[in-house]
Design a protein around this nucleic acid. Structure first.
Lengths: 201, 201
DNA sequence: CATTTCACTTAACACTGTTAAGCTGCCACC
DNA sequence: GGTGGCAGCTTAACAGTGTTAAGTGAAATG
């Protein structure tokens, strides 16, 4: 059918992932299926299984893409030199903005099968983009404590509390379609202000 | 097959809902299906459709059960007379506790088909348990502003920010099975402390 | 030229939600 | 007492899902 046989396996994987991302963005998370993805790339459904163990692995790869974006975005922000707390504030707001702008992608990363990275131990051992971005974020939070802008605390606890707050805002924006939610941007600002104010020294 | 023919339609609906709740709690959200539910109650799958329009309506009813529980729990807390802010603190902690203790039920209420109550307008018009519990919570938040314990703000904005924070903690506890999450109770306490401190006058 | 290997497909299995049509036993009515 | 209607439930089917075992045809290798 498709004339160009893929000698390059990695190249084809990318092609499948790109198609999957477009399918998610277009038809929404609930309407995604391996068979539709296959139709879209012009191959039979089973072909995908020659490049990805199963659906979960495909979704895992998509997640990693998202965390890779997060990681580089945070890196860019850190170079602006707005001071640790300023960077943290911008990072939190950017996180929500990104999540709300890419709801289907965010869903894949956070609301699919509960176990994609294995176990908490494996998560800490494997070098994934998810781990990299989390560590980078946690370091930033620790920096805010070290610089005296936030009250000293366990960095994991503080980082996860801040993240959970923003995660809650994004979840609300994504899932509460039938709820009279206030403007998500305003909600995000309020959350950031409340939490940073609450954890300030 | 089943000898006792149900002259009482409402009674049978309850029986189905009870079975559904047990099935969720036992096999988990991902393993629930109409056919399994039918097998469990000893009827054919189509029978369920004589009592519920479709799967969504069944899940809606389960959600309403959860919000009904929330509503009465909040009512009980309010009668303890710990002062508005004390009640609010307890309510927020109780919310997380309940969500983490009933993860499958919480999933049904917040992470299924995005539209179960119709639209934001319909949400405000229909008298649902979801609406009742939200209004009660928002009123409590407004009371905290009125009593001068929290900085005055739009009650919806403040209520939703507080809710989103707790919702984020529960979501993390439910979905981040493979992430090295800190103790969820500690995370909840930190979130409550941070937010209430941040919004204090 | 024969054989192996590679890239892919066909057919199938066991599921899913949902609907149209059919069966069965009981009640009311003539 | 017989019979029509009907309520309550079931069977069969449709269109879809993720996934696997087996097969096909062409290219590469000996």
């Amino acid at each position: 059918m498709n004339d160009s046989r893929h000698r390059n396996k990695e190249e084809f994987r990318r092609e499948i992932l790109d198609a999957a991302r477009e399918l998610f963005a277009g038809d929404g998370y609930g309407n995604f299926s391996m068979r539709k993805l296959a139709r879209r790339i012009g191959y039979s459904p089973t072909t995908i299984y020659l490049y990805f163990r199963d659906k979960d692995e495909l979704l895992f790869c998509l997640s990693e893409e998202l965390f890779s974006d997060m990681d580089s975005a945070l890196r860019r922000l850190s170079e602006e030199g707005a001071g640790p707390l300023g960077i943290l504030r911008n990072a939190l707001l950017m996180y929500v903005e990104y999540g709300l702008a890419n709801p289907e992608h965010y869903r894949v990363a956070f609301f699919t099968s509960p176990v994609v990275y294995g176990s908490p131990r494996e998560y800490l051992e494997r070098d994934t983009m998810s781990r990299r971005s989390y560590f980078q974020f946690r370091d930033l939070v620790a920096e805010c404590c070290a610089s005296g802008e936030l009250r000293p605390r366990d960095p994991d606890l503080l980082a996860q509390a801040l993240w959970a707050g923003m995660h809650g805002v994004i979840s609300a924006g994504i899932y509460a379609q039938d709820f009279p939610l206030v403007d998500p941007d305003l909600l995000a600002q309020t959350m950031v202000e409340g939490l940073l104010n609450g954890f300030r020294k």
